[in-house]
C-alpha cells in the first residue's frame, strides 16, 4: 500500500535517513522500532508531509504522494505530543477537525468509549496529559480511513484506557487497515504487531515478523532482540535473509 523509496533526510549535520527503503505492502499492524533518534517519528512525519525529505519518493497505492495534499484524506494521524489551541473546548476541536476533513465520523461512540462525555465543554488547557491523549485518540480514530499512523499513542494513558486503545487498534486492523505504530512498550509490540520495522543508522535494519526477528537474533523476547541488534549490529546476526539489509556487510 505504501512504499518509501530511497529516502534521504538530514537536519543540519545530523543525518537521519540515508537511502531508506521500506515497503508496507499490506494491511495489518506495523510496529516501527529503533533506538532514540533513529527517525521513527521523522518517518511518520515524512509520510504525512510534515517533514520534507531531501531526496526520495513515496508511493501510496501506486501514486506519488510527496508534495501532494489530498492523499492525507486517507490517513488518520495521532501525534506524539497532544498540543491543542488552549482556548478551544473538546467539543469545538472535534467539530473543527470534522469540518476540515469533511468525512463521515463516529465521534460520539469514541467519546463514550474513552469516557470523555463529561469533558466535552472543558477548555483543552484544563485537561490532564492523559485526558488530552484521549482527545488525541478520538481525533485520530473518528474517521474511517485505510491508513492510521500512531506515534507513541500510549504515553500518559492509564491501564484501562490502554486496554481500550488496544482493542480499538485490533478492531481497525480487522477491517483490513494499515496501522503504522511506534511505541517504547515492547509488551504492546509483542502483543499486537504483525510486522516489525527496525530502524538503525538511517536505514531499515530489519523488516519481518516477530518470530523472524527472534530467529535472527537468537533471542526469545523483543527487548533482548533489540538490545542484541543495538549492541552488536548485524555482524553478530546471521544475515542470509534478503529482508535484512545492512550497510556493515
Amino acid at each position: 500500500m505504501i512504499t518509501f523509496k530511497h529516502i534521504y533526510k538530514s537536519f543540519g549535520k545530523h543525518v537521519v535517513f540515508e537511502d531508506l527503503n521500506l515497503d508496507l505492502e499490506k494491511g495489518g499492524i506495523w510496529s516501527v522500532l529503533g533506538p532514540n533518534g533513529s527517525g521513527k517519528t521523522t518517518l511518520m512525519k515524512i509520510l504525512l508531509g510534515l517533514v520534507v525529505p531531501d531526496k526520495g519518493t513515496i508511493l501510496m497505492d501506486g501514486e506519488e504522494i510527496l508534495k501532494q495534499d489530498l492523499y492525507r484524506k486517507k490517513i488518520n494521524y495521532m501525534p506524539q505530543i497532544a498540543r491543542f489551541p488552549e482556548n478551544l473546548k473538546v467539543r469545538e476541536i472535534i467539530a473543527m477537525i470534522h469540518d476540515i476533513r469533511q468525512q463521515p465520523a463516529d465521534e460520539i461512540a469514541l467519546v463514550n468509549r474513552f469516557d470523555l462525555g463529561s469533558y466535552l465543554d472543558v477548555p483543552l488547557k484544563n485537561l490532564s496529559g492523559g485526558t488530552r491523549q484521549k482527545v488525541n485518540a478520538v481525533l485520530a480514530f473518528m474517521h474511517d480511513n485505510p491508513v492510521i499512523v500512531l506515534d507513541e499513542p500510549t504515553v500518559g494513558l492509564d491501564p484501562v484506557t490502554l486496554l481500550k486503545l488496544k482493542e480499538l487498534i485490533q478492531e481497525e486492523k480487522d477491517k483490513g487497515k494499515l496501522i503504522l505504530l511506534t511505541t517504547h512498550i515492547t509488551g504492546l509490540v509483542e502483543e499486537i504487531s504483525d510486522q516489525i520495522v527496525f530502524l538503525l543508522e538511517g536505514k531499515v535494519f530489519f523488516q519481518g515478523t516477530l518470530d523472524h526477528l527472534f530467529q535472527k537474533t537468537g533471542q526469545d523476547n523483543l527487548e533482548r532482540s533489540m538490545a542484541a541488534i543495538m549492541e552488536h549490529g548485524i555482524s553478530n546476526i546471521d544475515s542470509d535473509d534478503s529482508k535484512i539489509t545492512s550497510h556493515y556487510a
Partner: peptide, 16 residues
C-alpha cells in the same frame, strides 16, 4: 503560539 497546533492541522488534507 499556534505552532504546536499547526502540526495537527498540517496532517489534515489541507494545503500548506
Amino acid at each position: 503560539n499556534s505552532r504546536d497546533f499547526s502540526e495537527l492541522l498540517l496532517a489534515q488534507p489541507i494545503k500548506r
